[in-house]
Each structure stands twice: as C-alpha cells, then as structure tokens.
C-alpha cells in the first residue's frame, strides 16, 4: 500500500520538469545560455577530454628503450586482454565488489535508518562519529590500519596473544583482501550513510502520517516507505562504490610497504597501471590498461543502472 503512495507521488515531479524546460527555451538569448556553459566546457575539455585523448593516442604506440617509438595500433589492448596480471587484478576487484560493497552499503543503510528514526540518542554525535573516518585521509587510514594489522607486534595480534589464542595473519596472502575490505568499509560507511540520510530527510512527512494512520510499524515504514523512497540515492552509492572499487589505489600502494611481497604489482588494475608506467617505464601499455579499466567501469556502472531500472519497471507494473 505504502508502495503505491510513493510511486504516485513520484510521477508528477518528473512530468513537471520537461514542461518547464520547454518554456524556458522560448525565452532569453541563446547566447546567454552558451556563455553560462562556457566555463564548464573549457574545464571539461582541458581537464578531461584532452588528457583522455592524449592517453588514447599514447596507447596506440609502443616505445622501447632501444629503438624508440612506433605505431602499433591496438596491439597494447590485445596484450592487456591476455595479460594475467591485469585480468587477475580485475578479477580480484570483482570479488571485492561482490563482497565488500553489499556489506558496506548494508551497514550504511542501517545507520542512516537508525539515525533517521529519531529513536537514537545523541543522533547528531552518532552521525558525526560515523562520518568521521571519511574525514581521515585515505593514506592516513591505511597507515593506521596497517599498524593495527601488524604481525607480531600489532595491537590485534597482541590482544589475541593476551587471550592465549593463535593470532590471525591479517597481512597474509589469503587474508589481505579481507583486511583491505575492512579498511575501505571503515572509511566509506559514513560517507554513504550521509548520502542516504540526506535522502531520508527529504521524504515528505505526510507519508509517515498516512502510514501511522494505517497502523504501520517502524520496520514496515522503513521497508515500504523509506527504502523505496531513497532508492535513487542508494543506486547512486552503488555506482560510486563500483567506480571506487575498480579504482582502488591508495590501499594497495600503502600496504605494499608493510606486506610488500603479498601485494603484487597487479594487485588492483589501477596499481598495475601505475607500476607499468613508472616501474616498467611503459607509458603506452599503461595508457591502454587505464583505458580498458575505464571501459570495465563504464560497463559495470551501466549494468548496475540498467538492472535497477528494470527492477523499478517491474515494481511499477
């Protein structure tokens, strides 16, 4: 029932906007509109399109320490598609995505609902507290966790030893990905929570009143009103998370210092591109990898968006 309320509240808003846009189009000078867009376009071209174009250009060449640079077409791309290091990194990130993102967003959603429910004491400070890790720079966070994870002398190990238990090797080959997931979750839960919380605050209170009259419980309200209402916000956090996951760089780059052998050059695709460019000195191949990675991210984001739209259409019907 509540669902119908939400979807009927939604359409008018979308219906209204095209009309307005059309009306606006008739008025004013076309030049003014163009001028408003210019600052954005200039930055967009200079900071996004030109570097992208340059990377695309670079990726079509091969430059050797002996023999110089030559045009090789798509050879770098073909190579990347069969490069176990690159594919391994992408695979690792896909695993990361499937496990870490649901956990992180689940916690974020729970926190957002809890704080929004008005039942939590000191909601303000709870909100701030949950958001705080995001204010810690990623580099600092990773260094801090690296210390906590430390074998032999890290606090976690010491706690286990004090209890007479076998301490886990948190920086070992089989556990490092999990340790990394933990760092990322810790860091971004608050950020995602804030997005969801802001969306929750925007829900008109009339809906709650109606639900209360219908005798809906708190949980029922959360499931049937709040979550459907903030679905666009949740989708936004999912897409951000997909992009963020495939671009993981700080975590492997910094954990590399304390677990140097476990973190391989191709641990994440981004880290691999960096190593190829700066250690192997192969800027051209790195550009191809970066391009392919961008493609993977675009596809993944599109898939997520598409599937959510499908799901929505099903609900509407």
């Amino acid at each position: 029932m509540a669902v119908t309320t939400v979807s009927s509240a939604d359409p008018p808003a979308t219906r209204r906007s095209p009309g307005r846009a059309a009306r606006r189009g008739h008025r004013g000078h076309p030049l003014a509109g163009f001028l408003f867009v210019v600052p954005f376009m200039v930055l967009f071209i200079a900071m996004i399109l030109v570097p992208l174009g340059y990377a695309a250009y670079l990726s079509l060449f091969e430059s050797k320490l002996i023999g110089g640079t030559s045009f090789v077409g798509l050879k770098n791309f073909a190579e990347a598609l069969t490069d176990p290091a690159f594919l391994g990194g992408v695979g690792r990130m896909a695993l990361f995505l499937v496990i870490q993102v649901p956990i992180m967003l689940g916690i974020a959603l729970f926190l957002a609902l809890a704080i929004d429910s008005g039942r939590t004491r000191a909601a303000r400070s709870a909100r701030l507290l949950a958001f705080m890790p995001y204010a810690v720079p990623g580099v600092v966070a990773t260094l801090m966790w690296g210390y906590l994870y430390g074998p032999d002398f890290g606090p976690i190990t010491q706690a286990f030893e004090a209890l007479g238990l076998q301490p886990p090797d948190l920086l070992g080959e089989s556990s490092i990905l999990g340790s990394m997931m933990n760092i990322v979750t810790w860091e971004y839960v608050g950020y995602n929570m804030i997005i969801m919380y802001a969306a929750l605050r925007a829900i008109p209170t009339e809906l709650y009143e109606a639900a209360a009259i219908d005798g809906a419980s708190r949980i029922r309200i959360a499931l049937s009103i709040k979550i459907p209402a903030i679905k666009p916000a949740i989708m936004l956090t999912v897409i951000f998370s997909v992009i963020g996951t495939f671009q993981l760089f700080n975590e492997p780059a910094l954990l590399d210092a304390i677990a140097p052998v476990v973190i391989t050059n191709g641990f994440t695709p981004n880290f691999y591109a960096y190593n190829v460019a700066f250690v192997n000195q192969d800027v051209n191949y790195a550009a191809a990898i970066a391009f392919l990675l961008g493609l993977v991210i675009a596809i993944m984001s599109y898939v997520v968006q598409l599937s959510s739209q499908r799901a929505e259409r099903k609900v509407r019907r």
Partner: peptide, 19 residues
Amino acid sequence: PFNEFVLSAYNETVGVAWE
C-alpha cells in the same frame, strides 16, 4: 640499464618464494 624492473620482478618471483 633498467634496474627498477629488475628489482620489482625479483619481488614478484623470488621474493614471493622467500615469503
């Protein structure tokens, strides 16, 4: 004359074995 690669490749192969 490409020492970075030599050292980095060591870590990926022999280094892993030591670890």
